[in-house]
Computed example of a mutant assay.
Amino acid sequence: MFSSKAVRLVAVAAMIVTAGGIGLAAPASACACGGVAAPAGATATVGNEVALLGWDGTTETIVMQLALRSGGDHAALIVPTPAPATVTAADAAVFTELRERTAPEVVTKHRWFEETADGSMGGAPGRAAPTVLDRVQLGPLEATTLTGGDISGIQAWLDENGYVMRAEVVATMAPYLAEGWSFVAMRLTGTAALSGDLDPVQLSFPADRLVYPMRMSSAATSVQTVRLYVLGEHRVQRSDPDRGKQQVNVEFAGRVTELDDPALRELAANGRDYLTELSVVIPKPAEITSDFALTATEDKDYRRVVHRTETLEFLGFPAGSAALAAGLLVTVGVLLAVVVRVARR
C-alpha cells in the first residue's frame, strides 16, 4: 500500500539535557511528541510538528520536522518505533513541495467599492539495560537506536547518557516496552541557541501496519497539534479508538504526479501516489490511549477552497469611487455648459 524511506525528526517525549544531566524545570511547552522541557533557567518551545508517512507493506517511513526555539542547548527527543529504526538525515525540500502540492485553491471575488468598518551504553547493575544498536551523528543531532530492556534499565541508560526526563514521560514508555517496541533517542549536541525549523530526520523500520506513535504525548500538559502527510495507494483515515476524542480534519486528498523531490518519488512509487493531508488537534492529551492507526478508505479527492475579495482600483483609488467621481465631473461639466449657453442667450 504505502512506501518506505523517509522519516523526520520528532515524535514522542521530549526534554532538554546537558552532558551531565541537569535537572528539569516544568515543561516550557508541549509538542505532539510528548512535551519539551528545559533545564532550570533555560527555555524551549516548539512551534509546530509536521510528518510524512509511507508504508510499502513491510517497511514504514516517517519523515518529521519540528520548529524549535531553544535559549539553551541539548534539546532531546525519544521516538518509539514498533521495531528498531534506521535513522538518516532528510531534506526539508520534502515539506516545501508538499505544501505547494496541497495549497488550497484560491477563489477571488472582485468588488468595486471598499467595505465600511461595520461591513554511554548500559544500565545500572541489576537492571535490564537496553541494547544500543546504532548511534549516528546527523549534523547537530545525535541519534541512538535502543531495543530491549525494562523501564528501570531505560531510565538508567537515559540518566547515564545525559537525558533527563520527567517521571510522567518515562511512565509513558512502559506500554511500548511491554509490546516489544524500540526507541530512537535524539538530542542536539551543539551549544548554540536555536530558533526555527530543525533539519528533518528520517526513520525507517519494519512494520505490519501504518502507525504514528502518539501514546507518549499523554504526558503533555497543553493542547497538541500535528500535521500528517500520508502517501499510499488510496486515501487514508484514522481508525484508532482515540479519533473520536480529537479534532481530525482532511486538508487535502488526491493523487500527486511528476513529483520533484527524490524522497517523495520513492515513497510514491508503484502506485502509492495518493496523498492525504490530515491536521489533528488534541485538546486533552491526558486522554490519549492509542497511537494513530491509518487505514485505506474511499478515494474521494478534496482540496480546500479559500475565498477572498479584492477591491478593483484605478490610479490608486477604488474603481467604483473613481467611476462615480468621473461621472460626477462629467455631469458637472454638462451642467456648466448648459448654464453658460443659457447665460449667453
Rank of each mutant, 00 (worst) to 15 (best):
V94N: 04
A128F: 04
P84L: 12
D91E: 06
T257D: 14
E168F: 01
R215C: 02
S4N: 14
T309Q: 06
A40P: 09
T131K: 13
D301A: 14
A269T: 11
V248E: 09
A319K: 07
Q65N: 05
A286W: 00
L275T: 01
F95G: 03
S29K: 04
G320I: 08
I282A: 02
R304M: 06
H234G: 01
P27R: 11
A156Y: 04
A167T: 13
L294A: 09
D261M: 00
V334H: 05
A167Y: 07
R303F: 01
L146Q: 02
T59P: 06
A343W: 08
P285G: 12
A174G: 10
L188H: 07
R304C: 01
T61F: 15
E168N: 08
P104Q: 15
Q202P: 04
A156N: 15
T43M: 09
I288R: 00
W181E: 00
G57S: 00
G72D: 06
M15C: 08
Q246S: 10
P318V: 03
R344V: 09
A67F: 15
V7L: 13
Q65M: 15
A263N: 05
E266N: 14
A156D: 15
D134K: 00
W112F: 11
A319F: 11
G23M: 08
P104H: 11
Y274L: 08
K300P: 08
A85W: 07
V342I: 11
P130Q: 11
A323K: 06
P213C: 08
E287R: 14
E168R: 05
A156Q: 00
D301L: 08
G122A: 14
T45L: 12
